[in-house]
C-alpha cells in the first residue's frame, strides 16, 4: 500500500464521490481512480461500486477500512512525532488516572514524553470511573488509564493494557498476614478500607454479603497514602492492587473465593484531533511490555520480607 492510495481511499469513503474526493486531495480524478485501482489490485477485489451518485463501499472495502485507517493515522502521527521531536511548544497533556494506578508505573513512559517534548506540562486528574468518563467526553482530559468506565459511549476507544488483581493490604503484625492467601470468610469480621468508589471492594462486599453477613463495615480513604496509614494503625484491612509497591511493614495477600481482577485500559475518544503528545503516549502505553505487572506473584517475591 502506498500512503497516498490510503489517503485517497479514506477521502472516497468520506465523500462517496470520486470527483469530490479528488478535489479534497488536490489531485485529478483519473489519478485518484488509478491509485484506488492499484490498491484494489493489491487487496484482491473492488473496494467501491462506482455508480455516480450511488457510489458505495463494497464488503471488502468495509472489511479493510478500519485497518487501513489505523495504519494511516499511525503514519501521520509517526511523521508528526519525527518532526516535532525534541522541540518545544507542545500543549499540556491532560490525563485521567484511576486512583489505583501507581504513578511509578507510568514514570518510564512519562520520562520519554518529557524528553521528547521539552517543557511539556502534564495535568493529572484522579477520580472515580464515572468522573473520568465525563471528563473524557467533555474534553477536559484526552487520555485516561482506568478500569471499566461503566459507560458504553460508542466513541470511547479502549485498549487493554494489563490485568490488575486486588488483594488484602495488611500490617505485618496482623494475624492474617501470616497466611499466603486469605479465605474469604476470614474477612467477615474485618473492617474494610478502600479508595472511594472502589469497584473491587464493591465486588468483595457483595460476595461477603452472599455469605450471610448483612453488615459489612467499609471506610473510604481519599488517597492511597491514607489507606496505608490507616492499615498500619490497625483500622482495618485495605483493598489495593497486589502489584502495588508498599512499605516493608505492610503486605498484600491474595483473597480466595472472589474474583478481584480487572483489566486496565487506555481510553481515548474516537474522531477527535489528538495532540502529538497524546498520540505518542498512547503508542508507548500499547507497545510497553506489561507482563511484569500482570504477574503479581513475581512482584510479591521481589519485595523484601
Amino acid at each position: 500500500m502506498e500512503l497516498h492510495q490510503v489517503r485517497y481511499l479514506l477521502a472516497v469513503c468520506e465523500t462517496l464521490n470520486f470527483t469530490r474526493a479528488a478535489e479534497q486531495c488536490h489531485v485529478s480524478q483519473p489519478a485518484l481512480s488509478r491509485a484506488i485501482q492499484q490498491l484494489e489490485a493489491e487487496l484482491g477485489g473492488e473496494l467501491f461500486r462506482r455508480e455516480r451518485r450511488l457510489t458505495h463501499i463494497t464488503d471488502l472495502g468495509r472489511a479493510v477500512l478500519p485497518a487501513l485507517r489505523q495504519c494511516y493515522e499511525s503514519s501521520l502521527s509517526a511523521r508528526a512525532l519525527a518532526r516535532s521531536y525534541l522541540k518545544e511548544g507542545h500543549p499540556p497533556l491532560h490525563l485521567g488516572l484511576a486512583r489505583s494506578i501507581e504513578m511509578e508505573l507510568l514514570s518510564p513512559l512519562l520520562t520519554e514524553i518529557s524528553t521528547a517534548f521539552p517543557g511539556i506540562e502534564v495535568r493529572v486528574f484522579r477520580g472515580p470511573p464515572v468522573d473520568i468518563g465525563e471528563k473524557l467526553k467533555s474534553g477536559d482530559i484526552e487520555l485516561a488509564i482506568a478500569g471499566p468506565l461503566g459507560d458504553e459511549w460508542e466513541r470511547f476507544e479502549a485498549r487493554k493494557l494489563f490485568e490488575e488483581q486486588f488483594g488484602a493490604l495488611l500490617s505485618r503484625r496482623h494475624p492474617l498476614s501470616r497466611l499466603n492467601a486469605i479465605q474469604l470468610p476470614l474477612l467477615l469480621t474485618e473492617r474494610l478500607l478502600c479508595l472511594p468508589h472502589c469497584e473491587m471492594t464493591g465486588r468483595l462486599t457483595a460476595q461477603l454479603q452472599s455469605l450471610g453477613e448483612r453488615k459489612i463495615t467499609k471506610h473510604e480513604a481519599p488517597m492511597v497514602d491514607d489507606l496505608l496509614g490507616l492499615v498500619r494503625a490497625n483500622f482495618g484491612v485495605g483493598i489495593l492492587p497486589m502489584a502495588r509497591r508498599i512499605p516493608d511493614d505492610l503486605c498484600i495477600r491474595e483473597v480466595e473465593g472472589v474474583d478481584l481482577r480487572r483489566w486496565i485500559h487506555v481510553f481515548t475518544v474516537a474522531g477527535r484531533p489528538r495532540s502529538i503528545g497524546v498520540a505518542t503516549l498512547v503508542k508507548l502505553l500499547r507497545a510497553k511490555d506489561w507482563s511484569a505487572i500482570t504477574r503479581t506473584e513475581d512482584r510479591a517475591t521481589e519485595r523484601p520480607q
Partner: peptide, 14 residues
C-alpha cells in the same frame, strides 16, 4: 506500531 512508519516508506501491506 500499526505499521505507520512502514506506510510512510510505502512498505506496508495488508
Amino acid at each position: 506500531l500499526d505499521s505507520g512508519y512502514a506506510l510512510e516508506l510505502q512498505l506496508a501491506i495488508k
